[in-house]
Design a protein around this nucleic acid. Structure first.
Length: 327
DNA sequence: ATGGTTTTTACTGCGTC
DNA sequence: GACGCGGTAAAAACCAT
């Protein structure tokens, strides 16, 4: 899988660095041998004779947004955020031309020139002062986008934006990416709201690499003294169960297993996601549904080994609890 | 930096379909 | 023979100090 990606990447670079002779060769129509003419504006090369369009859109007009799997995400996430592309000029802000000409190309009177100069000054001030605003707006846009992708409610987005603002005010941004901090804010907010998403889930919809995300998250939590309690394993059960298409009975059992484990204090120090994964693996065993460790491992992003270790503990704790009840 | 704990990776053997 | 499961050892990641 990664083979393919590397291959593609290599192709792309060699393409870009293609020698002029190679380019020359491509200026002959493969269909009729006629000469090709390139319309650079549209990045389209067509044959003058037969009209065959050889290459459409060879020029990259913008970033690739969509990633269809993990490896594509890796290769595409290098692109920046939309706003770096959309910076003021492409967006809504106005730029005032430096030439002292009006719209018809006539030169302006000295009176008008002074006026324009003042406008330019204000425009520039406005734009620089706006820098923080834009930063914030982009971050909030990112938070919104990711929250939607993760199905997180409005309240979580609000919490996330509050966290982000605090990070901004405390000068935590210099040295980190807007996306990274935005991602971290959202992850923290979701956990605080009791609707946690796994690190993998969040990383999957984020534009930053998982490593950077985790690093930034730790940093933000520390610097802002955020109080983020360990996630409750139960809060993952519903999602995992539905992804695995478990019966309601099994899902209920999974919660029960976790409750039993909680009472026995199996928890401390263990990854809550691992516990949840183990529960949604163990529960269907008891209800005679077939779910493989592999499937759970894929859904929860937890290794099969960990699932094995945890689910034994879960079942033991459950049995103990049973006996306690019976006695 | 360090040490202790947890998780992952990689490899193995065993039983079943 | 592939698949699911289980165990193990060593590496890696994580966390508090």
């Amino acid at each position: 899988m990664s083979e393919t990606r590397v291959w593609t990447a290599n192709e792309a670079t060699t393409d870009e660095q293609q020698s002029t002779t190679d380019r020359e060769r491509e200026h002959v129509c493969p269909e009729c041998g006629g000469s090709l003419v390139t319309d650079s504006e549209h990045g389209e090369t067509a044959c003058r004779e037969c009209g065959l369009v050889v290459e459409e859109d060879e020029i990259d007009h913008g970033p690739e947004w969509r990633a269809f799997d993990a490896s594509e995400r890796d290769s595409k996430s290098r692109v920046g955020s939309p706003t770096t592309q959309m910076m003021h000029d492409k967006g809504l802000s106005t730029t005032i031309d430096w030439q002292n000409k009006d719209a018809y190309g006539k030169t302006l009177s000295s009176n008008q020139r002074e006026k324009m100069q003042r406008l330019r000054t204000w425009n520039r001030r406005f734009q620089t002062r706006d820098h923080q605003e834009r930063n914030l707006r982009q971050a909030l846009g990112e938070i919104d986008r990711m929250a939607s992708a993760l199905g997180l409610p409005e309240t979580v987005r609000e919490t996330a934006s509050v966290i982000y603002r605090r990070a901004l005010e405390d000068d935590l941004l210099p040295g980190r990416s807007i996306e990274g901090v935005a991602t971290s804010a959202l992850y923290a907010a979701a956990r605080q709201a009791g609707v946690p998403r796994t690190i993998d889930e969040v990383a999957r919809v984020s534009r930053v690499e998982e490593e950077e995300f985790k690093r930034t998250y730790r940093y933000v939590v520390r610097e802002l003294n955020l109080e983020v309690a360990p996630a409750d394993p139960v809060s993952y059960v519903t999602r995992f169960a539905s992804e695995l298409e478990l019966s309601d009975e099994a899902e209920r059992l999974a919660r029960e297993l976790l409750d039993a484990a909680k009472e026995r204090g199996i928890h401390s120090g263990k990854n809550p996601v691992g516990l949840a994964a183990a529960a949604v693996y163990a529960a269907p065993l008891l209800t005679n549904e077939q779910v493989t460790q592999k499937r759970v491992s894929d859904v929860a992003d937890i290794s099969e080994v960990t699932i094995r270790n945890r689910y034994r503990e879960l079942l033991n704790a459950y049995d103990d609890a049973d006996q306690a009840v019976a006695a």
